[in-house]
Each structure stands twice: as C-alpha cells, then as structure tokens.
Simulated scan of single mutants.
Amino acid sequence: MPHLTRSMAGVLTVAALLAGTATACTTSPTAPPLELDALPPTPSARVTAPSDQELERTARKRLDTAETDDGSFVLLSSSTGSSHDQDTRVTPGRTLTADLTCTGKGTATFVLSSGKAKVSKRLDCGGTTTAGVTSVELTPATRTLDVDIDVKDGDRVGTAYRVRRQ
C-alpha cells in the first residue's frame, strides 16, 4: 500500500505541475486577452505594378516635359511592348532628332532606319522613377522612316518617342 500512495503522489504532483504550466502560458499578464470573434490581422498593403496604360502615360509625360526647339514634329508615338511605325513624309538628307524614353521594368531597343541609314539605342527603363529622355540623330536616306521598338518577352515597359526635324 505505501508503494501505491507514493505512485499516486507522484502522479498528482506531475498533474499539478502541468496544470500550473498551462495556466501560466494562457494567462500571461503581458499578453492581450484572446477575443473569440476578433478578425485575423490584415496583411500589409500590397504594392501593385502599374498597368500598361499607366506605363504608357508616364512615358508620354516625359516627352511633354522635354524641351523641343521649334515643334516641327514628324512622328510622335507611345505604346507598351514592341511596336513598329512608319512615316513616308521625311526629306532625304535633312537630319532628324528622335527623343526616346521608356518606363517600367526591363529594356527597350529603339531602331530608326531610312534606307541604309540606321541608328539603334537600347534604354534601361530602370523602374518607374527614372526620368530620362535620350536623343539620337538620323539623316534619312529615303522618304521613308521606320521606327521599331523591341521589348523582350516578360519585360513590362511603356515607351514613347518623338521624331522632329532640325
């Protein structure tokens, strides 16, 4: 019988220790009380990527703020992704200036060509905060000017350019 009493005493001691530990964990004076009908915490606000229209609009605005000499535009365009434009009203031998810009994430390669005359410029669109406009010159060899913009698959960029006579 003494053996049984010692076993019972050991079991009761372990039970009391476990009960005390469980109570101490759930009734900590520093922890706020649990509310059964409380909503789970909301995740932090997610930053959404700009839409294609926003990328294009941002690129166009950059051209609006870039200085121009006399406003003698030949071609003005903006887009998202790769594109091709053509103008057949240029004067061979008269130098043109193209103002190029892009926004978003990735790169855009602008290629201006007229006959054998060709100029290519690759721009790093550098996120949505880069505010640069790059200018290049081309002297057309024919009456046709082609402007091609190549954007790699997976890149999200808005592009804009303005071609003007000097």
Rank of each mutant, 00 (worst) to 15 (best):
S28D: 13
L76M: 13
V136D: 04
A45H: 13
G127I: 01
H84T: 08
L39K: 12
L39H: 10
A22F: 04
S83I: 10
G154N: 02
T27C: 08
R162L: 14
P32T: 09
T139A: 01
C102L: 00
D70Y: 14
T21Q: 10
K61R: 14
H84S: 12
T129N: 08
D155R: 00
T26Y: 08
G154Q: 04
L63Q: 06
I149Y: 01
G127P: 01
T68V: 07
Q166E: 07
A98I: 12
D69I: 13
C102N: 01
D150F: 08
V136R: 03
G115R: 07
A59V: 01
A49V: 05
T130Y: 04
R156V: 08
R165Q: 12
G115N: 07
R165G: 05
G106T: 02
K121L: 02
L36S: 05
T144E: 05
R60M: 10
E54S: 13
L12N: 04
G106N: 00
T58K: 11
D52E: 07
V47R: 15
P33N: 10
D99V: 01
S78I: 08
S120I: 05
R57N: 06
T159E: 00
G127D: 05
G20R: 03
T144K: 09
S113P: 04
P2S: 01
P92R: 06
S82T: 11
D124H: 05
F110H: 01
S120N: 08
G132M: 10
V90Y: 13
D124F: 01
R122E: 07
D148N: 15
V119L: 00
V147A: 07
V119I: 02
L17G: 05
V151F: 02
R62W: 03
T5M: 08
K152F: 06
L4M: 10
T107N: 03
D85H: 15
Q166C: 00
G81T: 05
L18F: 11
T5R: 09
A16R: 08
G126T: 02
G104Q: 01
L100Q: 01
G106S: 06
T5C: 03
L18D: 09
G127R: 02
T13M: 15
L34R: 14
S135A: 12
A16W: 06
S83T: 15
R94I: 09
T95G: 03
S28T: 03
T142F: 12
T5W: 11
D124Q: 02
D153E: 07
T97R: 09
A19P: 00
V133C: 10
L34N: 08
Y161T: 04
K116P: 13
G154T: 08
G10Q: 10
L123G: 01
R46M: 12
T30I: 06
T130L: 09
P2I: 00
T27K: 14
A98V: 14
T95L: 04
T130M: 04
S7K: 14
D99Y: 07
L145V: 06
V47D: 12
P32N: 10
P50K: 13
T103W: 02
R143Q: 15
G158T: 03
P33L: 15
